[in-house]
Design a binder for these strands. Structure first.
Lengths: 298, 298
DNA sequence: CGTCAGGTTGATACGGGTCAACAACTGTGG
DNA sequence: CCACAGTTGTTGACCCGTATCAACCTGACG
């Protein structure tokens, strides 16, 4: 609980909507099921005063670029638990910076199977998946009451031309997503249930730590079923693993309240007392020099 | 065999013992072991004359931008089977466009476990993973004799400022990677062995089709072990699934030579006669537009 | 010839899925 | 206040799919 919490220092005014109803794309009206997504008419926190800025898209921008960026954040949207920020298939109009709360993203196969693809916390950018096709490929749903800033992408694109640093930030955000997915693939492809859950907890702990919150004591925002979906397990298995980890004194888990009692041992569980692993690049024993470096600067 | 075939109009050494409608380039039968990578000092095919251009980074560039782009492709590198194009941890200097052949990318966990993360064919761009951190996060290894164009990234970055279309192409390439990974996650997280292998075959077929090669008859470039690693299975399981699919008349598999005998049924295997699947966005019933295909493009 | 990598197939073990019962908690309405 | 239903989480019993271990085949190559 540091800075992360109160960038939301204002009261909600009303009126003065700058241009179009913008929180999410204009068509971001009540997504069925739950509550209205409420675009805050007055942006309460301009980027210049936002404590998240350093980690957000405008991170590192100089003084005069920030208001320019600020101008494309049309609205902050308020979401209640279960609200859909965007949906697979809906047109890609904006990236979203999570200002408060957390969201899950999920992808759906044709046959209806759905899988949680990501669990995103405050300060993270979501919606990137839409860049390629122009429409989103996953659903984003609030796991708790949340707020997100919608950054109009067409205008962001323009601004990127003028502000290289911004372009770099966007690209890095995309690339981080690639790299995050690598980790998830490793998890889904080769870890067993206990390792997966441990990896999940360790990851959450680290992300809390980065945000200045306790890394050893936090609240899970997803149900056992969602966690299972994310980790490629069934909910019963997730539940059992929590119980087992608790029995072994590694964690204390009461529902969604989690305490990590022995982080080092949890880490060790990951690195594998597990099987040694083989796999080779076609049988190269030692490290060949990658071609890359032989071609000096191409 | 359209355009995809003869960008390699030179003689690539001696090879050429092709038979049948094979897509890959020269069959490439070489032993393992690292070879010298031969950066071709003279680029043989400037982008302007490359038949892959439309699908490559300079796709859609206008006449005068193409030579500019061309200038940053310093070299084409020639790889023999098993050669490492770049390695996790090595500095990120360039993106690579695969001009001939195919490569796998693999990621490695701290404990040494390694997993194939991608299988990339002619016309695809690899190396994107390095953008975020400045160094690569995965290894790229040639699955057969191959050639790749190295595109210096620092200079590419500069050129992107001047050429918006190029910027868009790079971003789209990155985003496609995100979307590809979504598909893979779905596979690793929720499919059973038979579905995974079927998905893999269907994906390969589609990519061959896109390249103007036979979609029903092709050669696997990875060993059973690599395929298993990619799909989160053990090699024996992969082998068994091939045998079972063959017994059911869906495919004909002799080693790495694959014929799809009944593509429709193979597709059906994917859509799931399988369990109905539940999961919901917190109770939202409505069906968004489904994700394009189960495996975006794995 | 022998060796080795890659592939197939069988026997068996086990992890996690499946089905089911139940507890804790929430919100609703009488 | 209570009764009731719905959601979430826990736990047990059982079974299936995949991993594991092992034998063997094939083709390439020295």
């Amino acid at each position: 609980m540091t800075s992360w919490r109160n960038h939301d220092d204002g009261k909600a005014g009303a009126s003065s909507r700058t241009s179009g109803p913008r929180c999410g794309p204009p068509p971001a009206r009540l997504e069925r099921g739950r509550h209205n997504v409420v675009p805050l008419r007055d942006r309460k926190t301009p980027c210049a005063g936002c404590t998240l800025r350093a980690r957000c898209l405008p991170g590192g921008l100089d003084g005069k670029a920030i208001p320019q960026f600020d101008a494309l954040v049309g609205n902050q949207c308020r979401l209640r638990r279960g609200d859909v920020l965007f949906r697979a298939g809906s047109p890609f109009l904006a990236l979203y910076a999570i200002r408060v709360g957390s969201l899950k993203t999920s992808i759906r196969a044709e046959d209806g199977r759905e899988q949680v693809a990501g669990c995103h916390m405050i300060g993270e950018i979501i919606g990137l998946d839409g860049i390629a096709t122009g429409s989103h490929t996953c659903n984003a749903v609030a796991l708790e009451d949340s707020e997100a800033c919608a950054v109009a992408f067409d205008r962001l694109e323009e601004l990127m031309h003028a502000v290289p640093r911004l372009q770099r930030n966007v690209r890095q955000t995309l690339a981080r997503e690639v790299s995050r997915n690598h980790g998830l693939m490793l998890l889904l492809g080769s870890m067993r249930a206990e390792e997966r859950v441990a990896a999940y907890l360790v990851d959450l702990a680290e992300r809390h730590r980065q945000r200045g919150c306790s890394a050893s004591e936090f609240v899970l925002r997803m149900t056992r079923e969602e966690i299972g979906s994310y980790l490629g397990l069934k909910l019963e298995t997730v539940s059992r693993v929590f119980s087992r980890l608790q029995a072994e004194g590694l964690v204390q888990a009461q529902g969604r309240d989690i305490k990590l009692l022995d982080p080092p041992r949890l880490h060790r569980l990951l690195r594998g007392d597990a099987p040694p692993a083989a796999a080779s690049d076609h049988g190269h024993p030692a490290a060949p020099i990658p071609i890359d470096s032989r071609i000096a600067s191409v």
